[in-house]
Design a protein around this nucleic acid. Structure first.
Lengths: 229, 229
DNA sequence: ATTCAACATTGTTTTTAAACAATATTTTGT
DNA sequence: ACAAAATATTGTTTAAAAACAATGTTGAAT
């Protein structure tokens, strides 16, 4: 992990909500003291149980947000792509992270101290509402995950994950940044069964698999499998 | 369900956040146009998929908040007791409920139109922060539920639920308002196995069971079962 | 180019918990 | 008080998915 402090938001292509909020109240974004951090693949961006000291915004790359559960088993809640908050879920209630985040590739994030953020949303209502909206979105995703994990069979769960990945990568053809084990963790399925189901889907002509490259050939059927559970 | 409109907050014992927020900005709580609704056991207070039009606050009684999943199977997320919000989770993001709420006994709730609430938190920051806190608390509960459902065996899950219930009812001895089936839904366990495990815990001298009356005799052991999964 | 480690695959066994089935008990409505 | 419905209980069977085991493949490091 490498850090560069006091980023000048003018040079940042990503005009995030925090920046916008700062501008809206005629405050110089320099006051936000934004800090970039660069992570390599598999580095922790935040670790379950540690203190939430900064708001974290993903600039580029990608990351997985996951719960470190019992017996060293992880559950990946969802993936993070540019332009999303990392710290949100533990933002308002708990002073420590309820989950961990790891970079899935070379990833840049921008941090703003939580106290700075607080003073910002005290001055700017709209900003707080935006935070809430993003927060609500995460929750909706998580509720959906509960149904999936609890009520669908592994076939339906893997189908879910594949559809989710295609949405994340914005195409029916994509190269996922996940290992088979991680695909399993995203789906609540053992590594072995994740492999087996990919093969099965391939044999059924629903997808093409070549390593981590996936091509969804029959989205309709895959959706059906997901819906039926 | 029976309704009484234009409640006078002065007569309400429960001085809720909404009331306090209203007072803080020197606004007459009459403007909130609070409405009470009285529900009998098993009546829907809100139904998954319908519009979120009001903020709902539980005055007395109790309710279960649950997802109506696939194949008519429910997952109870948690129980609601007086002085908690009902609508929160779907508040900021979606215009419709992501879950349902049903009264578990005779229950009184107070509703305030969402537009009224919005204008209130636009005037009062602290109030919005309080909403956020409550929101965050719900999320923490739900994350915990994911681990439980996904990584613990049914023994640990039922142990979890019993500990949770004792916390809700504020005692090691309590009469739960849940049927065996509902205890299963709270724990992600079939009705039959819920029964079986209660019997098992009873035989192991960890709890006493008489109908819906539960007495936790060995909290230490029960906690251990919960932790080990 | 070779070795080691991480990742992926496939078959087999075992465990877990749901589903099914039958019956008992309690509650509710008339 | 009685029938009917809802709830609870217990034993048995079946299905699902993890765990185990063995082997293959790929890729990075030297």
């Amino acid at each position: 992990m490498r850090i560069s402090k006091n980023i000048d938001c003018k040079n940042c292509e990503l005009k995030c909500d925090i920046y916008t909020a700062s501008i809206e109240i005629d405050e110089d974004p320099v006051k936000l003291k934004p800090t970039y951090a660069y992570y390599s693949k598999n580095e922790y961006i935040s670790k379950q149980g540690t203190n939430v000291s900064h708001a974290i915004f993903l600039i580029n790359g990608s990351a997985k947000i996951f719960i470190e559960g019992l017996n060293n088993k992880n559950i990946i809640l969802y993936l993070m792509t540019p332009n999303t908050y990392i710290g949100l879920l533990s933002f308002f209630e708990t002073p420590y992270y309820l989950y961990s985040v790891k970079a899935m590739e070379d990833t840049t994030i921008c941090m703003v101290e939580i106290e700075v953020l607080k003073s910002l949303y005290l001055k700017n209502h709209d900003f707080l509402l935006k935070l809430n909206k993003a927060f609500g979105k995460s929750v909706a995703q998580i509720l959906n995950k509960i149904i999936t994990l609890n009520q669908k069979h592994i076939r339906g769960r893997i189908a879910d994950s594949l559809l989710y990945l295609s949405q994340i990568y914005g195409s029916d053809y994509f190269e996922m940044k996940l290992s088979r084990k991680e695909l399993g963790e995203l789906s609540g399925v053992s590594e072995e069964n994740a492999v087996r189901l990919l093969t099965e889907f391939k044999n059924d002509n629903i997808i093409d698999v070549k390593g981590r490259k996936i091509n969804i050939k029959d989205r309709h059927l895959l959706t059906q499998i997901s819906n039926l559970g």
